[in-house]
Amino acid sequence: MTAPNPSAIAQQSAVTVIVDEGKCIADKGCRICVDVCPTDILVIDLGNGKVRMAYDECWYCLPCQHDCPTQAIRVEIPYLLR
């Protein structure tokens, strides 16, 4: 499905949804944060099975942090707003 777009380059942004991989249980099937994120920016990393932020589209609204059963997530205010 994913085809690279030869006419664009990737932009870098600081990750502001910080996942504690030691606590994250996504590799055991948990999808709670991925499900509740309104902008759908959290994905499962195919390498380690843990959650990571994939798009710089965070509303810093906190359902991911509040609903995480293992308190593995800490949301920071996006750098541009700090």
Partner: peptide
Amino acid sequence: SSGYLFGTYENPT
């Protein structure tokens, strides 16, 4: 004014 596309007043969805 932050320039952050998703830093909106409304839920950006």
